[in-house]
Simulated scan of single mutants.
Amino acid sequence: MARPRTISDERLLAATGVVIGRFGPGFTLAQVAEEAGVAVGSVAQRFGSKAGLLRALTQAGRRDVVARLRSVAVSAADPRAALRDALVAVYSEIGDAATAANHLGQLGMDIADPELRGLLGEHYAAMEKELRGLVRAAAADGWNGPEPPVAARTLLVAVNGAALDWSIRPRGTLVARLRETIDSITGSWYA
């Protein structure tokens, strides 16, 4: 009879995110295991390899980002604020510029791998789909902006670029930079 799991995949994936933030793409399964408080074999057995762990992290990240966008959208009374707040919520846990840079370094490695690049494409497509709904809700009164698919893609590209820029030139907080970026774009979309 197999032993029951005493640690969840979510805990291992959360530990992976912390370790990537600390060490960037050079992280090891041993560092993930240490962060999670388990043996290295537990991580390797569960995910097979570092590549398997990264695939699982990307898939879980997609589910998490969709849930985060939806929860902010549901809780906000003002659709314009919901759009901005949802985008900010996606990136608000990044922390400091060094952590952001380490995550971006891992992103660069992920893009180089065809399978992970495909999963990242699914991740960003899911984000864009959720953003289209938020744009539609915000586009009611006085909207002078692009069609929702274009607006959603524009905002997604802008916040990704702002996060990258902030990780290299960290002035102020990431949240403030994202709000400023989003507001500078969406402000022109209303009459």
Rank of each mutant, 00 (worst) to 15 (best):
D64T: 13
G61L: 12
P148K: 10
L29V: 14
A44N: 08
E10V: 03
Q106I: 04
S167K: 02
G142R: 10
A2Y: 05
L107Q: 11
H123L: 15
R22Y: 08
P148C: 12
Q106F: 15
E115I: 09
T99D: 00
V157Q: 14
A44G: 04
L53N: 01
A36E: 05
A125G: 14
R22D: 15
A14M: 04
L116I: 07
A112C: 09
S184T: 12
S49T: 06
D85R: 10
L54D: 09
R84L: 08
F27W: 14
K129T: 15
I20S: 04
L120Y: 07
A101I: 06
A191N: 10
G133P: 01
A77R: 15
G26A: 14
A33I: 00
T99A: 11
V40T: 09
H123N: 13
R132G: 07
T181I: 03
A138D: 03
A82I: 09
A56C: 11
A126E: 01
H123P: 04
V150H: 14
T99N: 04
G187A: 06
V135E: 04
I20R: 05
N102L: 05
D78P: 00
P149F: 03
L120I: 11
M127R: 15
L69N: 09
A151Y: 03
A82H: 08
N102I: 02
R177N: 08
A163D: 05
A138N: 02
A112D: 13
A158I: 07
